[in-house]
Design a protein around this nucleic acid. Sequence first.
RNA 1: GCGGGCGUAGUUCAAUGGUAGAACUCCAGCCUUCCAAGCUGGCCACGUGGGUUCGAUUCCCAUCGCCCGCUCCA
Length: 533
Amino acid sequence: MDKQETTAGNTATMEAIVSLCKRRGFIYQSSELYGGLNGFWDYGPLGCELKRNVRDSWWRTMVRCREDVEGLDATIIMHPDIWKASGHADGFADPMVDCKVCRRRFRADQLCEELGLALERTETGFALPEGVRCAHCGANALTEPRAFNLMFKTFVGPIEEERAATYLRPETAQAIFVQFKNILDTTRQSVPFGVAQMGKSFRNEINPRNFTFRSREFEQMELEYFIRPDEAVELLCGSVAELTPETDLSEPREDWGWEVWHKYWVEQRKIWYQDVGLPAESLVEYWQPRDELAHYARACVDIQYAFPFGVQELEGIAARGAFDLTQHQIHSGKSQEVFDEPLKLAAAKLDDAARDAFRERTVAAWTAQGRDPEAARAFVNHLFEGKYIPHVVEPSAGVDRLALALICNAYCEEKIVDDKGKEDTRTVMRFHPAIAPIKVAVLPLVRNKPELVACAREIFTGLQRRWNCFWDASGAIGRRYRRQDEAGTPFCVTVDFQTLEDGTVTVRDRDTMQQERLTPADLKERLTELIDG
RNA sequence: GCGGGCGUAGUUCAAUGGUAGAACUCCAGCCUUCCAAGCUGGCCACGUGGGUUCGAUUCCCAUCGCCCGCUCCA
């Protein structure tokens, strides 16, 4: 198959998936009634259940099942200085120009600077001085400079004035850093520990694409896991555990440095993706090469999924050092250091010679990285007092991206041949039961037998309290099964004439279309095993 | 953002310078003892705004949206 055929085939698949999403109520275009709004999507009845299941699973795994992670639910609108400290406001408010000839984009101020010129301010924005040309092709065909702030701006209070301006958050993570001290003070946690948050974020993406994959309003699930700087680990444990292929990552250990912690979270996250139904072979682990890393990142791994439109990122797991808390310490003027008693005790046990040696080693290491030796000395002196700004490992995932991956992964067209040899296509959403929007459909075999319907109804209301269930009594049973196949309902419970005699019902499996007959007593137990087991 | 393509029921498609048909879906009813069966009836569309024209879903322009390629993605 050549590349074009592949693309065409994948486009066809994606179109079929988008069509099913609308037809069955997973995802609709936002504001469709008014012609739609680029980069915004709504989740319908099935889609919102799917998303809820994804979020619940993440929260359960990351927060409730761990003693070392706390939850947070911060506001979407926060103090605008936060975005200055984080780098979002400055880094993305630069005026940009496009070359109409070679179609490259440049920062207007940088083009001017190279020519020793200055960007001119106008009443409405910026203007290029005479003589500025495209830095790539040299053409004199640049657009007017345009501000490219990818954050959504808004105003706090009813008056639209600059001093009231702020932004909708472009990521949920910053609130975790900003509330770090409060959480530390109110939870009895100590480093290492994490804070998790999920919620909406907003980015004015230049070019929303690929269905919901790149949207302007989207939902994130983020963890900031705070760890000791490696130097603190060394003081405490004598050495920092080296990351090797044999390193046991099943349980955290005290002597882990950032590299092992980082790898640990990559592994944890991969396990979870498989738990929600993405096969291991569909996941790609992409380690960003050094030159691709943001300046504050020490390492970053993308967990990617092979979408029909390409292999794309579901989650980024970054080791960010102490960058974020340091930024907030600088901008807020308030210390973000923690006090680590075991560290202080460990440091106190060292004699002066050992301390000096440690200090010299650290200064040498920092200097080798081009960092300030004075800062290194101050850092070490704080360490000896048990004080440091925690480092952080950040697994940051997109809920919508994962929901889309789960939908793509579940989508399946299957050829089946009936008893009469007639061929038919069955469209099935093979969701893992844990995240399937509807877990069980309850169906009376026929509708015109009141006692049969009544019996099914009773079973339905019984199961409804436990799982999201669906009632369907219309038309022929086959049609109802197929309807549930497209919704991705893993199990259908059918009440038939034998039920009236001995109380047993059938449970039909979505993927195999096989049925088993169970007594009412066994039904709930069996479904629990199938759905929650 | 640039270039190309496309917008007709929920979906997939037709037709037409004189305001649109079908299939499937969906809804109601009948029927139905396990995989989109059958019968009867029903709902539902020319993305939006201009222009040309006696008259535009059809031609033109703009806009919005979707898809593809490039670009971008802190």
